[in-house]
Nucleic acid binder design. Structure first.
Length: 430
RNA sequence: GGAGAGAUGGCCGAGAGGCUGAAGGCGCUCCCCUGCUAAGGGAGUAUAGGGUUUGUAGCCCUAUCGAGGGUUCGAAUCCCUCUCUCUCCGCCA
């Protein structure tokens, strides 16, 4: 959520910036609501004050034994007016809030203006795509040449499309990848390992910005009722990890807080029916090691570089060629003000595919969550800044390894850094 | 799942329709006293929103005692719903 002061006092500039990411802010409607809010709030508060003053005088009159009947008569109309005003104000605030909740973050000035992924800017490349002197197979064929390590048919029987059953060495490789990442981030990069719920409530989803706008991307397990909140499976560990800070006030000395978790992620993939239907690239359930940082506002852009570097390190250790993309305004996620995507080389597709997305959300999520910190010596707590990134998506890393490490005889070499997690196994053979 | 108890400021803990934004204690901050790692005295110490204003100063107002609704001129206090915590029983990985 944006600072309401921006929407109140500087709507024009805000609207212009938002337009670069393809979002149209209805300035006139917002201004009109704001006008109304102001006068209504003033009136409501005056009436409340009036009520308080009169109630007190009635109390005093009663205590001193006076007749209060005339005083009560005076108050009757006030009571009704106040109830009306309060009701009206409440509705209006709800309306303004529901609009504010759907406004995306403002892109940082360093973000290139563009309408879609074609206008993202390549920042750097690492590694050389390997030359193969045989016909490269994609990961599905690599796996099936090895046995039934990736069993799509059984997963379809058990659940449906876009799920996977993994077996044997492939399943173990999948686990090894997660182990490597967690060990790297906790031992070398200073993240605290966390185990978190995979089901989260409505407030958490509002906090990180999945709701109210993107509910159709989620798997809901329990409908929200009049009173109780619904629960949904997490689409990313960003949701539980970041919401740890919801309604908290940290001391400056506690920052930065760096957390990592390995979790499954669940996405309904609504609206992507025809895309990446083959293989592991786009699944309803996939594992990911997530990185989250909570930092002081002045340090969030440095932290973004650092966090992205942590994700890159995984690719470097695995010796997987990748490129780093700076997303343009039109391709960024809802809450982000600046995002780097890491794209790994997939020889079978002869292209780079997204394997990590690292974003600085600024205070956008923190404001929704009321996640704050108190600077040393400062009286008032301030919103902190939140960042998150994949470090990395495990399923896609598995894909990249199977494809980049395949050999002419159909076997797959185990990347050296993973062998310690594979009981020393060097080659996966049929 | 059954029965009961509870939710108050950074923490502990009073309060049981009006004078309570909230006693008291602890903690913390500042000042004073004290020549020694102790003790004592004083002051301050929630958050959000609005108005006024050149002002992130001051002043004024409003809201907030788990959340939401209700009763009342007036609710931390009474009623209803929900959420969470604790105790006992049952069940269970």
């Amino acid at each position: 959520m944006l600072d309401s002061k921006l929407l109140r006092t500087d709507v024009e500039t805000t609207a212009q910036k938002l337009a670069t990411r393809g979002f149209t802010l209805d300035v006139d409607a917002l201004n009109a609501l704001e006008e109304k809010r102001k006068s209504l709030q003033i009136r409501t508060q005056e009436l409340q004050n009036d009520r308080n003053v009169r109630a007190k005088s009635i109390g005093k009159a009663k205590a001193s034994g006076q007749d209060i009947e005339p005083l009560l008569a005076e108050v009757a109309q006030l009571k009704e007016d106040l109830a009306n005003a309060e009701h009206e104000l409440k509705e209006l605030l709800a309306e303004i809030n529901s609009i504010a909740q759907t406004v995306p973050n403002i892109p940082h000035e360093s973000v290139p203006v563009g309408k879609d992924e074609n206008e993202n800017v390549e920042i750097s490349r690492w590694g050389e795509p390997k030359e193969f002197d045989f016909d490269v197979k994609d990961h599905v064929d690599v796996a099936s040449a090895l046995g039934n390590g990736l069993d799509f048919e059984t997963a379809t029987k058990l659940t449906g499309s876009r799920f996977i059953v993994m077996n044997g060495a492939i399943a173990r490789l999948h686990r090894a990848i997660a182990q490597l990442m967690l060990d790297l981030h906790t031992q070398e990069h200073g993240y605290q390992e966390c185990y978190v719920p995979l089901l989260v409530n409505h407030d958490s989803l509002l906090g990180t910005g999945q709701l109210p706008k993107f509910g159709e991307d989620l798997f809901h397990t329990k409908p929200a009722t009049e009173e109780g909140q619904g629960l949904a499976l997490i689409p990313t560990a960003e949701v539980p990890l970041t919401n740890i800070a919801r309604d908290e006030i940290f001391n400056e000395s506690q920052l930065p807080i760096k957390m990592t978790a390995h979790t499954p992620c669940f996405r309904s993939e609504a609206g992507s029916y025809g895309r990446d239907t083959r293989g592991l690239i786009r699944q309803h359930q996939f594992d990911k090691v997530e990185l989250v940082q909570l930092v002081e506002p002045s340090k969030s852009f440095d932290a973004l570089e650092e966090l992205t570097g942590h994700a890159e390190k995984v690719l470097q250790l695995l010796n997987l060629p990748y490129r780093k993309m700076l997303l343009c305004t039109g391709d960024m996620g809802f809450g982000s003000c600046k995002t780097y995507d890491l794209e790994v080389w997939l020889p079978a597709q002869n292209t780079y595919r997204e394997i990590s997305s690292c974003s600085n959300m600024l205070d956008f999520q923190a404001r929704r969550m009321q996640a704050r910190y108190r600077a040393a010596g400062a009286k008032k707590p301030e919103l902190l800044h939140t960042l998150n990134g994949s470090g990395l998506a495990i399923g896609r890393t598995l894909v990249a390894i199977l494809e980049n490490y395949q050999q002419a005889d159909g076997s797959v070499e185990v990347p050296e850094v993973l062998r310690q997690y594979m009981n020393g196994l060097e080659i996966i053979r049929p």
